[in-house]
Design a protein around this nucleic acid. Structure first.
Lengths: 358, 358
DNA sequence: TTGTAAGCGTTATCAG
DNA sequence: CTGATAACGCTTACAA
């Protein structure tokens, strides 16, 4: 469905409840208005509100009364302009509807909120333009820092130039090339090795590897780890971390006559679900005929049919750790030093893997 | 796991890659710096960048060169302060990891992005304090508008007072009480009726209703619709839209000796999953012994085991419609008039419902 | 075609 | 204890 189509889906019914016109939004009351009404200077009003310096109790009381009577709320723009920071950070992800990023977001949000920061969600939907648009938020100093979860491609040029000058944390990625950033990620290599060993133990000797984008380090590390411990042959097929690509890669393999594999290691859980759906629609049973393994352990994976064997990533912790580190640096006004945090992964064996058929 | 526990989960390994200290973040270059370096006034620089008035081509070229040489990016705070708006809107949801809200968010984001707006995600995690904190963003004029998806409770007092003065759209809720807002929601009542009719047709005569929060209109409408068309007896149990509450309500019923129901209508898909898990762990088979129906049709529901019969809500469209309407009002500088948009729902019959056992 | 100065709404500095 | 005044960084009259 395209955006146009969606807009075309008009409401089945819409009723006007009030006057046909909305009321004009009136100019907000400013600190000057309050000061004038309370018979004091803006300075005093400011100090009553911030507590930055003592104010006599009678004056303070009067000011507070006027403030609430007029419904005054300090404008955060002016405040931030003066302060030089906004107490807002960004979280850039390719697809927030992917449970992995949703969990990650919770970790980011919790950590941020504890420190008085708000989180602006930047969902790129795998769109480079949108990503650039969101990266402008930090260049224009609308946000104080950014937690960046790459979804694809060679992490836009734009990002690279920002790393040295802005507080940015790279999550879920080990961008080994440019070692100039704060990175927090799961141990993808270890995850791949766990899967390779697991499938080997189950006597699988021919596996399909549905990878993520070829230029994404995390994806490559998973593959490399797998190949280290897998005793059989593996065929790599490049996907893009979306369910549809898992489905497509299996369809294409099957239709091109390849049916000799007994195991599939998908780049992430979403692709694994796509793969399982494709296998099922071709009458291939999981795990009897083919075993399937995912990566991420999103909440769905325990509930699916069959429940998915997958590598658990501590998404919440990744988000929390990255944010904590990042904000620590922001607090002292410096760009985070290059450092890499690797968080442990675990293999969760469920119902989608079994002994290879002979 | 508490936040503290999570913080305690230290990275398995962290290596310093660069110098131990991050570099000091230097003061951003301002329009004055550029003007000075280019030998023109700030005004001219501004106009070169905004195109708000003609500038001679030679001057413009020189300015542009300096701009890119110095890496100047206009500060959005000063700009917004001057302009009186930020081109950022908020989206407040209780739980972004719920597929329904994730879909909704996509709709909001797409619509916003098309109009040059960014979206700040406000994930309250069902926490009233956090909700209030986020509502302050609009009162302090950090965001231009807010799409508000209530998750619980009598929609805080605070919200009520904002509705008249700020551009806020209420989504997924028909807050019939205060008819002063722009509301976009699915037809919950119709959804409830569809489910009631479906279960009646399958000969179910005793059903458990796992509702959402009692004071949430959407939840009540679903229940009311269901009761209109269901021919048997229904027992209402109040939950909170989270998976755990679906699980708990079933556990409690079963342990209190109630086993005479043959159908469960859950307040949403998450609760339905919780319910199915609880039934399963008590050796009750779905749908052979008990049929289960959800509400929302989140992406998982088609993949679960068994696939969930549920009411499909057009989450993406709800988000898109609300945002489009809202921004239309923002564009002309007025608070949206009270209006209610009802979007159609559909029953998706899958594997979790069957004829009642006799 | 360009520049000067005022103003957006705060807080910080410096006086009193 | 309080108040002018400047400054944050930009845009936009108003002038030249």
């Amino acid at each position: 469905m395209t955006p146009e189509d969606r807009d075309a889906a008009k409401p089945s019914r819409a009723e006007e409840l009030g006057p046909s016109q909305g009321s004009r939004v009136r100019r907000a009351v400013s600190i000057k208005d309050v000061a004038h009404a309370a018979g004091v200077s803006p300075t005093t009003v400011s100090h009553v509100l911030t507590g930055n310096r003592p104010v006599s109790e009678v004056t303070a009381a009067r000011v507070r009364r006027v403030v609430s009577a007029m419904g005054y709320v300090p404008g955060s723009l002016a405040r931030s302009l003066q302060a030089g920071s906004t107490s807002v950070i960004g979280l850039l992800v390719p697809d927030i509807s992917n449970g992995f990023f949703a969990e990650l977001a919770m970790g980011v949000e919790d950590a941020a909120h504890e420190r008085g920061y708000s989180v602006i969600l930047c969902n790129t939907n795998f769109d480079g333009d949108r990503e650039d648009h969101y990266l402008d938020l930090i260049r224009s100093r609308f946000i104080d820092a950014m937690v960046y979860a790459a979804g694809s491609a060679p992490t836009s040029k734009r990002l690279e130039s920002l790393l040295g000058s802005f507080p940015i944390a790279l999550v879920d990625e080990n961008v080994t090339g440019l070692g100039t950033a704060l990175e927090v990620a799961a141990d993808h290599g270890a995850g791949g090795r766990l899967v390779g060993a697991h499938l080997t133990e189950l006597d699988h000797r021919r596996a399909l590897l549905l990878t993520g984008p070829a230029d994404l380090p995390s994806s490559r590390e998973r593959v490399a780890g797998f190949l280290e411990t897998f005793a059989g042959d593996a065929i790599e097929l490049v996907g893009d971390f979306r369910e549809a690509s898992g489905r497509r890669l299996i369809e294409e393999s099957l239709e091109s006559g390849r049916r000799d594999f007994t195991a599939v290691f998908a780049g992430n859980d979403l692709m694994a679900f796509g793969a399982m759906a494709a296998l099922r629609s071709h009458g291939i049973s999981v795990p009897r005929d083919v075993s399937v393994v995912g990566f991420d352990d999103i909440p769905v994976s325990a509930l699916s049919c069959p429940a998915l064997t997958t590598v658990h990533q501590p998404a919440y912790d990744i988000g929390r750790t990255a944010t904590t580190q990042l904000l620590q640096n922001v607090a002292v006004g410096e760009v985070p030093p290059a450092a890499r945090h690797l968080l442990p992964v675990e293999l969760r064996v469920r119902e989608s893997t079994a002994k290879a058929p002979h």
